[in-house]
Computed example of a mutant assay.
Amino acid sequence: MNFIVNLLILLPAQIASYFSWAGPLIMRLVVGYTFMLAGWGKLTNLPQVTENFIGWGIPFPKILTPFVSGVECFGGAMLILGLFTRIPAAMLAVVMLVAIKSAKWGDVDSLQTLLGFEEMTYFAAFTWLAIAGPGAASLDRLLMKSAGYNEVPA
């Protein structure tokens, strides 16, 4: 039993520990870039996006459209940089929940359908980043170290 644990659990964990910086970095780059571009597209086409928000029944569409578009664009840029990561990640997780509820909820007929939405995948990614943090390759980590914090949260 020890052989199996060592070979199939401990050894892969030890190897992975050398690359712990890569997972959060890759996630931040992928979702950050995607949402920075999506938000920019919405910011440059606010009238049409506002009409979409109205059609989905989102309250206060003239206020929330530029707000959500800005959260996506600038939050995405902040994620790319790993700057104040947990805040934009949490905000974008909420945006994904609202997107599912307002634009997709009528299509939900099973758990499989719900979990199949790309918005649910993004929700999971943003929630993970909000909880786990940006990782070592981030401006957050650099700011913490430059401020003299020896113990840097993950």
Rank of each mutant, 00 (worst) to 15 (best):
F3A: 14
V5W: 12
N6T: 14
L7T: 15
L7Q: 15
L11K: 14
P12D: 06
A13I: 12
A16H: 10
A16G: 11
S17G: 03
S17N: 09
S17H: 09
Y18K: 14
S20D: 10
W21R: 02
A22C: 10
P24H: 04
L25M: 08
I26N: 02
I26P: 03
M27C: 12
R28E: 01
R28F: 03
V30E: 04
V30C: 11
G32D: 04
Y33D: 00
T34N: 14
T34R: 13
F35P: 08
M36T: 02
M36N: 02
G39Y: 06
G39R: 03
W40A: 11
K42P: 06
T44P: 12
N45K: 00
Q48R: 10
Q48N: 12
T50Y: 05
N52C: 13
F53Y: 03
F53M: 06
I54P: 03
W56M: 10
I58E: 03
P59I: 08
F60Y: 09
F60I: 10
P61M: 07
K62S: 13
F67C: 09
V68W: 03
S69F: 03
V71I: 08
C73F: 14
F74G: 08
G76Q: 02
G76W: 00
A77S: 11
A77L: 15
L81T: 08
L83F: 10
L83E: 00
I87Q: 01
P88N: 06
P88T: 05
P88F: 03
A90E: 02
A93P: 00
A93W: 00
A93T: 00
I100G: 10
K101V: 15
S102F: 15
A103F: 10
K104I: 10
W105Q: 00
D107N: 13
D107P: 07
V108D: 04
S110E: 06
S110K: 09
S110H: 08
L115R: 12
L115T: 14
G116P: 06
G116T: 07
F117Q: 00
E118D: 13
Y122E: 04
Y122L: 03
F126K: 01
T127V: 11
W128A: 15
G133H: 02
G133Q: 01
G133M: 01
P134G: 07
A136D: 07
S138H: 05
S138K: 04
S138C: 08
R141M: 09
L142R: 10
M144G: 11
M144D: 12
A147P: 00
A147T: 01
A147F: 10
E151K: 15
P153M: 01
